[in-house]
Write a protein that binds this DNA or RNA. Sequence first.
DNA 1: CATACACTTGAACATCTGTTCAAATGATCG
DNA 2: CGATCATTTGAACAGATGTTCAAGTGTATG
Lengths: 119, 119
Amino acid sequence: MIARMIRPVANPLPALSDDDAARLADMFRLLGDPSRLRIVLACIAGPVSVGAIAERVGLSLSLVSHHLRLLRAARLVKATRQGKQVFYAAADDHVRCVIADMVSHVGEGPEQDEREEDD
Amino acid sequence: MIARMIRPVANPLPALSDDDAARLADMFRLLGDPSRLRIVLACIAGPVSVGAIAERVGLSLSLVSHHLRLLRAARLVKATRQGKQVFYAAADDHVRCVIADMVSHVGEGPEQDEREEDD
DNA sequence: CATACACTTGAACATCTGTTCAAATGATCG
DNA sequence: CGATCATTTGAACAGATGTTCAAGTGTATG
């Protein structure tokens, strides 16, 4: 019940420059890979070590690390060293919001490819 | 003022299945291409013809059509025929939200690649 | 110092994906 | 019907991208 709270009906999106659009696209592209997205989802849960992530999502340590590097560079996740381990967490609430919104969108309709729907 | 309204601090994101994650990733991947994202942005403005989009974003008719097909299949945009022309618009407010949230994220910090920031 | 653990890095490979060009479809008008 | 406009489609190509394997850091422990 409290899950789906007051949703502002979307900001006006003040005319992004082509450069801004490119930066945005970079972010979306990072979330656009299933493995990487699952890694991000694992990080949203809370600070998790690389090994824990790898096990959770069922990917090699190496691959997870590669992905984390990209996500870190884009500031989608942030890292914290603690002894031998490195813990990763979602950078801020925006990434959670973005994903939550997209979940809403997907949950909307079972996605069928039709030409028009104005009949 | 009314633009940035009450922002719920993000839904709990109720444990997505690997399948759901894949579907989500598909959506994000579509927004992850600069050309395609600019097309979506053009569609958010309001119902626009393919030709108008092509001119606005500076891409060939053919390419825009190819992209629109993918966006349509993912229900990110919806099409409406009107005479010879076909008008496209953003499917719903969710896509606007998603993009707006990502804008917020990018606007947050000028993105630098550091190992840790807990000092 | 040497060993072991946790993670990172680099190069190589196969695959996917955006783009282009040419041809085809659909719709309106004379 | 033939012509023309608006959009779509298919095949083909170059470049980007995810994945793997092997080797390289860095940190604690004995």
